[in-house]
Design a binder for these strands. Structure first.
Lengths: 359, 359
DNA sequence: TTGAAAGCGTTACCAT
DNA sequence: ATGGTAACGCTTTCAA
C-alpha cells in the first residue's frame, strides 16, 4: 500500500494526500475526510524509508553506549530506559549503538549512513574521540556526561566531583579520619572515563581539605571484586572506618566483605557513594548515597537534543546536576566502637548486617 | 556525497559503483580499485534510507519491550544488552520500541512504517495481541517467552514451570513443608504475563506432588514491596520456612524483611527462585537460584530472527531452556531451628544475614 | 484549494 | 564487464 494507491482511491493527487496527512498545507474538509476514510480503511501508513529519503529526516535518535563486556550497570540501563521513553513522547524512535570508540562499525553506520537525526552519547571520556568527531562534523548530539572541555557543547551531566566531595564531607562530619575510595574498574579509569576521574578528583580534594588519611582503589563491576576490594582495604589499613564508592555493582560485595571481616555497617564502618536510588534501597542496610537521577538525566538529554534538532542555530545548552545525599542507614559516627585489630576475621563475632530491630 | 558523485569521479556508472560496493556482480579489479580509492578518499557511505527504499530492507531489528513504569529489572536489561550485541555481530542495528500492546504508537510505527526487517518481543503474555498481530500479517518475529499456544511460532523461552518446580523440589528435599511463592506484581499476573503464570503453575503442581502447605503472593518490583511481602507471609503463617520467588527486584527486600523478623537465612528460612546469575551473587547470602541465561536467550533470539529473515520459508524453530539451579548460600535444611512464635518481631534477636564466619 | 512533476539516493533489471 | 534507466514511495516546489 502506497500513497499513490490512496490518492487514486480518494480521487485526488498524491500531493494532496501527503498534505492532508502532514497538515503542511490547508486541505478542504471534504477532501480531507475522503482521504482519511480511505487511509483508515486500508490502514495506510507512509513508509519511513521513503519519507526519510524525501525530507532528510529519520525521526530516529541514536543512543550510543559502550559494549557491555560482561553486563550493564543498573545506572546505564536506567539511562537507556529513560531515553527511550522520553524520545517516545516526541514520537522519536531510538536506535541503539554499542560503540565505545569512533571507529566502531555500528557508530559509523549511525552517522555515515545517516540513520538518525541526532545522537545521545553515554559513558563519556575526558578525551572522547566520538564526541570530537561529532563536534567536528557538526552532527547534532548531546552527551550524558561531559569531556574535559565541555564549553560550547550540549550535555547533561552529574557533578561527580561535587557529589563525591559531599560524601567525603558527610563522613568527615561524622568523625571519620581514615577513608577509602572505591572507584570503577582500573580499565575504565585508564581509558579516561569522566565519572571515574572527576569522582576521584573530588575525593582527593575534599579529603585534603579535611585532612583525612585516604587510600584509593579501583574495583571490578561485580560483587566478587567488591568483596576482594574490602579485603585489600582492611589489609592495607585496618583502621579504615569508612569508604566512598562510585561502583554500584560492587556495593553488594563491599557489604559482604565488611560483614565477613566482622565490621558492622554502620556501627563500625560507614559506606556511602553515588548510585541509583532504587538500588540504594535494595541493599541492607540501605545505602546513604547521592541518588543518581538517571530518569531525569535521560529525559533532559532528549529534551536538549530535540531542541537542538528543532532549532539548528540555538546556542549550546547544558544541565549540571548535583542531587543531594539521601541519608539512609549505611553511615554513622566514627569511633562508636574502636576498630578491631587486624587479626584474621574468623574469630570475631558474626555481623548483623546493620539491622536495628530494637527501637 | 552520493553514489552519483562517486561514479563521476571514478569515471564509471552508478550501477558499477553499487555493484562494486555490494559485490553482487563481478567487477574488474581495475575499476574496483579505482572506485574504492574514491570511496576512501571521500569517506563515502551509502544512505541507509535510500538503500532501504530501493531494496526493501532496513538492516534494522526491532526490539519491543514493555514501558518501564518505574524502572526495568536486571533481567530485562540484560536481554536488551545481549540482543543489541548479538545483532551487531550480523551488522543489524536495533530499534527500541517501548510497547506493551498492539496499539502503542511506537509499535505501530515499527510495523506500519516498515522501520525494521523483523522484531523481537519481550515480556510475552499468554494471550498477546502483539504476537497475534505479527503472526496474522506474517511479519518476521521471534519472541522471548511464549504464548499459551506457541506451536508453529518462533521463540526462545525459559521453562518457568520446570524451573519453579525444581525450586520447590529442592526445598522439599531439604525438608521444608510450609512454603510461600512470591510472584511478580499482581498487575502483571492479571495482565497474563507468561512467566508469572507458568511459574505459578509449576509452584502449585510441584507443591501438590510433594504434599506441601503453600501460600502464593504477588509482590511489587521493588525492595519495599519485598519487605512488606515477607511480613504478610510470616503473619499469614508464621511456620513458613521457605519461599520461592520470580521477583528479582524484590529479593533485597525479602532478605531485609526476614532479617527484621529475626529469621536467619538459611538457618531458619530458605530462599530460592529464578533470577539473573550476577544478581544472585550480589546479595548476601548469595541466592540459590535458577540463573536466567539472559545473554544466551538474547543471542538465540537474534540467531533465530536472522535465520528467519534469511530463509523466509524456513520452518518455525524454538529453544526452550531449563538452566540448572545454582546451589549457593540461601537454602538449607528445614527445622535446624524451630520457627519462632508468631509474636511481634521487635523482641527477637538481631539477624546475622546468613554469614558464617566460623568454619 | 488542488495537481503535476522534479527530486531524494539507492538498487536491480535489461541491454550491450 | 559495464552502462542506462526504471523503479522504490514519499515530500515539496511550481503552476494553475
Amino acid at each position: 500500500m502506497n500513497i499513490g494507491e490512496i490518492a487514486r482511491r480518494a480521487g485526488v493527487s498524491r500531493s494532496t494526500v501527503s498534505y492532508a496527512l502532514s497538515g503542511k498545507r490547508p486541505v478542504s474538509d471534504d477532501t480531507r475526510r475522503k482521504i482519511q476514510q480511505v487511509v483508515d480503511e486500508l490502514d495506510y501508513q507512509p513508509s519511513a524509508s521513503a519519507r526519510a529519503l524525501a525530507n532528510g529526516r529519520t525521526s530516529t535518535l541514536g543512543l550510543v553506549f559502550p559494549p557491555a563486556g560482561n553486563h550493564y550497570t543498573g545506572m546505564q540501563l536506567d539511562f537507556i530506559g529513560s531515553v527511550v521513553e522520553a524520545a517516545a513522547v516526541y514520537d522519536y524512535d531510538v536506535l541503539l549503538s554499542p560503540s565505545g570508540v569512533d571507529s566502531d562499525r555500528s557508530f559509523q553506520r549511525l552517522l555515515g549512513e545517516r540513520r538518525v537525526d541526532g545522537a545521545i552519547l553515554m559513558e563519556i571520556k575526558l578525551e572522547d574521540d566520538r564526541v570530537d568527531h561529532l563536534a567536528a562534523v557538526g552532527f547534532p548530539s548531546v552527551t550524558i556526561g561531559r569531556t574535559a572541555r565541555p564549553e560550547g557543547g550540549w550535555w547533561v551531566s552529574l557533578d561527580h566531583t561535587a557529589l563525591v566531595e559531599a560524601c567525603v564531607h558527610h563522613l568527615a562530619d561524622l568523625g571519620h579520619r581514615r577513608v577509602a575510595f572505591v572507584n570503577r574498574p582500573e580499565q575504565l579509569l585508564r581509558a579516561g572515563y569522566e565519572s571515574a576521574h572527576r569522582g576521584l578528583d573530588g575525593f582527593t580534594k575534599a579529603a585534603a581539605e579535611r585532612g583525612l588519611t585516604v587510600r584509593t582503589y579501583c574495583c571490578g563491576d561485580d560483587a566478587a571484586s567488591g568483596q576482594a576490594c574490602v579485603e585489600r582495604i582492611l589489609r592495607d589499613d585496618p583502621a579504615t572506618t569508612a569508604l566512598v564508592t562510585l561502583n554500584e555493582a560492587a556495593v553488594g560485595g563491599l557489604y559482604r566483605g565488611l560483614a565477613l571481616a566482622g565490621r558492622h555497617v554502620p556501627r563500625d564502618f560507614s559506606v556511602t557513594g553515588v548510585v541509583a536510588g532504587h538500588w540504594a534501597e535494595t541493599v541492607t542496610p540501605q545505602l546513604t548515597a547521592a541518588d543518581v537521577p538517571a530518569a531525569e538525566l535521560g529525559r533532559l538529554a532528549v529534551d536538549l537534543l530535540v531542541e537542538r534538532l528543532d532549532h539548528p542555530d540555538a546556542p549550546p545548552r547544558h544541565h549540571l546536576l548535583t542531587p543531594p545525599i539521601s541519608l539512609r542507614a549505611s553511615t554513622g559516627p566514627a569511633g562508636a566502637t574502636p576498630a578491631p585489630d587486624a587479626g584474621p576475621a574468623g574469630a570475631t563475632p558474626v555481623a548483623d548486617a546493620g539491622l536495628d530491630t530494637a527501637p
